[in-house]
Amino acid sequence: MIIFENIVKTYGNLSALDGVNFSVDQGEFVSLVGPSGSGKSTLIKLLICEERPTKGKIFIAGFEVTSLSPDQIPFYRRHVGVVFQDYKLLPDKNVFENVSYAMEVSGRSRLEIRSQVPKILDLVGLFEKKDNYPVELSGGERQRVAIARSLVHQPKLIAADEPTGNLDPVNTWEIIQLLLKINQQGTTVLLATHNKEVVDSLQKRVITLNNGRIVRDQMRGKYVI
């Protein structure tokens, strides 16, 4: 599902990732931990092709991400769902529109949108709030909208970069439950996080980064830095 081969990423003299090797199988739930500046966000950026590695190759869901042409990137991104700490919702669109927007840009028909979006909103438990705007929602609800949006392309992989970073413990737990639910349906989840309690309670695979290198990769890991 995910293969990182000898990935090196430097910004000028600064080394963000230095020889990163790992692979993730279809259906796995992997937490990516490490202190600030350890390279977690860089890794996610490489994953969604927002940045290109300085060296090495990345294979994801059958794509060789590192050799995609600019024209192919949008089509690749429809196979990967991304969730961010700051949600990245569109403030002047309501919940339904925020989700349907992702389907519109990829040219799905109105019929598909009308049948698909309510199902996904139901999955994240926000169907009742489909007409509300992001400002009217709590942080947890906003993040659920973002997750719903990342699901519309039925991706094989969801990458979440600190999705609970702005949330209180209750909302954090809701989001993690949701990610687990999505994972149970067969979607691979890569969760970059700082939250020790979350990682420890998950009892899933943990990859620990430090100074741009993988220092630990455990199948039932704990948050250890």
Partner: peptide
């Protein structure tokens, strides 16, 4: 956001 959700140029 459009770019992230896979909108073509």
């Amino acid at each position: 956001v459009m770019k992230l959700v896979g909108a073509a140029k």
